[in-house]
């Protein structure tokens, strides 16, 4: 893509990457941002690690542009000067794009190669120790559900991801995954010299959770960056909570944790989330759970 951009910018073609929600959270430790400001940190990080010269635009937090253009995670479009879509691919294909542009505005010779560009790609942020806290085995296919962070004066240094399993989807009886992940772009690590993370969950009538309070394990290392994860039994009683009310029902999660910033400060945080047990189509799918580092960045 970089070479096509270099060649066709000479022919007055504009190129933009559109930053959107993460397709695969946890790869290289990255987690879904909660705010537009945090998504812009992702954009800056993408520029840093990819070494790209292509300009970035950032979709809004409702992901309206992505949804309006088909919802694919790595799609590619050519727009004509009047704003009409004249080429669309569900998956980015630079060779195809070069052909399309050459038909529209003419060939470019010589063709720039990736070696010509000497892109400086950098590694993802260096985290505190990982692989310290064992991760739970998932009971099966998991689906992300809606997590709504409530207003907080402090950034969400730790971000909640919630998922439910097939058993719950099919029978109303199964498991809920609750994972608290450090945001690597906010420069914090767990302070294990302080008490471990703890949380409580309040559920509406008709939703029963096996454990309404939980505490992360004590960790011997002074600091680490592993997620604090829990699997909780969950049961829905449709006689008490009707299907109509189910989609609106919210669970309330209050979490307390201690974190230290890489610059030196250490603090405690109390933050609150609401969880709705409805699918979050912008949450992405975790591919690297339990494998530190994940699969690496896309779009190189």
């Amino acid at each position: 893509m970089e070479t096509v951009a270099v060649d066709y910018k000479k022919k007055e073609v504009a190129f933009y990457y559109i930053y959107k929600a993460l397709a695969h959270p946890e790869n290289n430790g990255y987690v879904q941002p909660f705010t537009l400001q945090e998504r812009l940190l992702h954009v800056a990080e993408a520029k840093r690690v990819l070494g790209s010269d292509i300009d970035w635009l950032c979709d809004n937090m409702q992901n309206q542009l992505k949804q309006a253009l088909g919802g694919a995670p790595n799609s590619q479009f050519v727009i004509d000067p009047r704003g009409k879509i004249i080429s669309a691919a569900g998956w980015s294909n630079p060779a195809e794009l070069r052909n399309t542009l050459s038909e529209l505005v003419g060939q470019v010779t010589p063709v720039t190669t990736i070696q010509d560009l000497g892109l400086k790609q950098l590694p993802p942020p260096r985290l505190a120790a990982t692989g310290v806290v064992s991760r739970p085995a998932m009971p099966g296919l998991m689906r992300a559900v809606m997590v709504k962070p409530q207003p907080s004066l402090e950034p969400y240094y730790v971000k909640l991801r919630a998922e439910v399993d097939n058993g719950f989807m099919q029978d109303g009886l199964g498991w809920m995954y609750v994972g608290f992940h450090l945001d690597p772009l906010l420069g914090v690590h767990w302070n294990n010299l302080a008490p471990p993370l703890e949380f409580n969950i309040k559920t509406p009538a008709g939703l029963c959770i096996a454990s309404s309070r939980a505490r992360a394990p004590v960790v011997k290392e002074e600091a680490d960056a592993d997620p604090r994860e829990f699997l909780l039994g969950l049961e829905w009683d449709p006689r008490v909570l009707t299907a109509t009310d189910f989609s609106r029902a919210e669970m309330i999660v209050e979490v307390k944790y201690y974190a230290c910033h890489d610059e030196g400060w250490c603090r405690s945080f109390n933050q609150t989330y609401h969880i709705q047990l409805v699918p979050d189509r912008n949450a992405g799918s975790v591919r690297s759970r339990g494998r530190p580092g994940g699969m690496g960045a896309r779009n190189r």
Binding site: V43, W56, L57, N60, L65, L69, G70, A88, W91, N93
Partner: peptide, 23 residues
């Protein structure tokens, strides 16, 4: 690409007018 047929169907349509932000 074959997994996203809805994307190809957008050819010929106008790019929707949506607010985004630059970097």
């Amino acid at each position: 690409s074959a997994q996203f047929p809805q994307v190809a169907s957008l050819v010929g349509k106008q790019l929707p007018d949506i607010n985004v932000v630059d970097a």
